[in-house]
Amino acid sequence: MAALPTAEAARPSRGGRPRDPSRDGVIRAAILRLLADVGYGALTMDAVAAEAGVGKATIYRRWRTKQDLVVDTIADLNRDEVHSPDTGSLEGDLRQIMHRFVGVVNGPTGAATLSLLSTMPRHPALAEAFRNGPLTVWNHTFEQMWDKAEARGEIGPAFRHSVAAESISALIVQRWLLTGLPVDEAYADEVLQTVVMPLVRSQA
């Protein structure tokens, strides 16, 4: 969670000049680091330029405002990190997708997301970018996985809309956001074996 079109293909540059794709990854990585370190309120366009090691004009050509910069970055989260697995079984696909989710929450994207959660209610554009960006990417990936599982006869059409389907990420998200306990692949495997797969089998 094939990947959706990249931002460069899907959206024009906000600044009016063509982007230099070779710098985009460096700039986005710098934005994520700063969001994790100082949060949205303290983030500045000049700080992004300094962190990325590029000129200020490079930033201002791409984005007119700080909100534009962060919205554009959020909208692209996970597009290159998440792809639909195809192991030949639903259990194998679930294991891969849960491991990828663990990798995301423990990486720069997860750290930046944590810093933004308290900001989103006051900035609807950020919340909309999150819904239309990473949440859409993950939902698309899950939909592809459900399609394959249905074709193999492992689940019925109703499963994808069930509470059981929601449980796949719920415990990992709860542990990540609320408990401060480690979120690792061993925990994801335990959730898969003791919670998710029994629910899948109960509705097969």
Rank of each mutant, 00 (worst) to 15 (best):
A151W: 05
S118W: 03
V173L: 09
S22K: 13
R201Y: 01
T119G: 05
R14N: 11
D76V: 13
K148T: 10
P12K: 09
S118F: 06
W146I: 03
W138C: 00
A49V: 03
V195S: 00
L35W: 10
R14Q: 12
K66W: 11
D147M: 08
W63L: 08
V26H: 07
A42E: 10
Q174R: 06
A151I: 05
D68W: 06
D20P: 04
A188N: 00
H99K: 11
S89D: 12
Q174D: 01
A47G: 06
S167P: 02
V173A: 06
P182D: 00
L4M: 13
A10Q: 14
Y187T: 00
V102E: 10
A36E: 06
K66P: 04
R23C: 07
V195Y: 03
K56E: 04
W63R: 07
S169E: 04
P108H: 13
A204H: 01
A127R: 14
P18K: 15
A186T: 01
R62Y: 02
V173W: 12
A204I: 01
V137I: 06
M98H: 13
D20Q: 09
T109S: 09
A9I: 15
I155S: 01
K148Y: 13
A30C: 14
L34D: 07
V191P: 01
N139T: 11
G16M: 14
G180A: 01
L135A: 11
I97E: 09
R152L: 07
H123P: 05
L90G: 12
L77G: 10
D147F: 14
A165S: 11
Y40H: 06
A7G: 15
G133K: 02
A3Y: 15
E150H: 03
T141Q: 04
L116R: 03
R79V: 15
H140R: 08
D76A: 15
L77V: 02
R160V: 04
R95E: 10
A29P: 10
V183S: 02
A129G: 11
V48T: 05
V105M: 08
K66L: 11
A10Y: 10
V137P: 05
T179G: 02
F130V: 00
V71I: 13
I168D: 05
D86S: 14
V54E: 03
A158C: 05
Y60L: 10
A50M: 04
R152N: 02
E154P: 02
I27C: 08
A125C: 01
H99C: 10
N106K: 08
D184I: 02
V71R: 14
A170I: 01
T65D: 03
P157L: 08
D93F: 14
G107H: 08
N139A: 09
L90I: 11
S169I: 04
A47H: 02
E81F: 15
T58S: 13
R201I: 00
I172H: 12
A158M: 10
A3G: 14
L177K: 01
R122A: 09
T58P: 06
V137E: 14
L35D: 07
T87M: 11
H140G: 03
H99I: 04
I31S: 11
G41S: 06
L4P: 13
D86E: 14
I172F: 12
G15V: 07
D76F: 08
H123F: 11
R100S: 08
S22L: 13
F130Y: 14
G103P: 04
T87F: 07
D93Y: 11
H140N: 06
M98R: 09
F142C: 00
